[in-house]
Design a protein around this nucleic acid. Sequence first.
DNA 1: GTCTATAGGACGATAGAC
DNA 2: GTCTATCGTCCTATAGAC
Lengths: 207, 207
Amino acid sequence: MTVPVYRRDRARLPAAERRRQIMEATAQLIAERGFWGLSMQDVADRCGLTVPGLLHHVGSKDGLLVAVLEHRDAEDARSLAAQLGVDDLTAPWAGGELPPGVDLRRMCAALVRRNAGQPEIVRLFAVLEAESLAPSHPAHDYFAARQEHTLAVFAALAKDLSPEPHALARQLMAMMDGLQIQWLRSPQTNDLVQAWEDAAELLFVDR
Amino acid sequence: MTVPVYRRDRARLPAAERRRQIMEATAQLIAERGFWGLSMQDVADRCGLTVPGLLHHVGSKDGLLVAVLEHRDAEDARSLAAQLGVDDLTAPWAGGELPPGVDLRRMCAALVRRNAGQPEIVRLFAVLEAESLAPSHPAHDYFAARQEHTLAVFAALAKDLSPEPHALARQLMAMMDGLQIQWLRSPQTNDLVQAWEDAAELLFVDR
DNA sequence: GTCTATAGGACGATAGAC
DNA sequence: GTCTATCGTCCTATAGAC
């Protein structure tokens, strides 16, 4: 007859640190399998937790997804701000103001450079962007808002570059997303930064 | 005490017709939930079958996916050939020769027009294209081959249009995929055909 | 903050009757 | 060509101990 035993050999991390660990493991697993293919068991295993232990931190599977997206946005905002040499840039997809003196072409280049260094994260967003087209997906609203905001920011910055700033904004976004997918499919024969520069040469032509 | 009963009130369709029904139901469900989110039960329900009945036709869940992709390719090849006014065009993504007199810009326009009329199918491919980036995905090889072949065909047709036909091919593909995602996200504020024409104006510029 | 234990389903697949 | 019945596995989530 087996007797219930409380096992004390698990690490007991501070909540903040555990949270970061969970976010990273989840991002990797969603990139691999999508949100529908994600299992709480896998996340828990990778963190050295049981499933209820994991749920204690994130509440539910949907809560986990939201937490991951917010975590990524915060990280990206910090990195992009540093790269553009401004202090308090809020990521364009998270809402917020734009600092003066940032021009669209440099901003796109910075985004692409940043993404070229973290293929796993790019894949995470590529998978979720497609999955979340379905209105019932838990990240549907998040991605709808994100796209709308990015388009608005791009269009505002494109005002002096094109007679149709909104169309240009759409084209820039489409090209970035499309080139990223190709790059993810075969990174070895495909330099993302170079591909973007070639494309930018065409899209940013004077009119 | 319940007694096993063989229920005879289900429709007994010819295999070919049943197959077509299964392909269509599956395409719709994958577009909604992705392959990882697809359940054989849902497909069976939508076809008025039990799960074993469904498995009799497709063998396994992976087999079902492959069948759907092959089914779509065949349909698309027929439609595209009709639109371009040639008899035996094999779809560029399925392997095969290109008829003389088909130029790249007209071909892209035909593809976009075709896609604009079947958003559910476009969504199916958008979701699978992202999901299948993972090497363990059952459609990984299919989509890798598809992308490679499409790029090769585009590049061949771009030979006289650009000093770097391969780069142009990549840009065309990226732009098509990217614009389609935006269109799927908000079809009402987004005319796919118009957006493509605007973009083509930039990408097909003389150099 | 993490555990054990368990509820309560859904999953893909197989065997064998009709 | 479709069924019933069933196997074994996986799933998210909760209750309550420590």
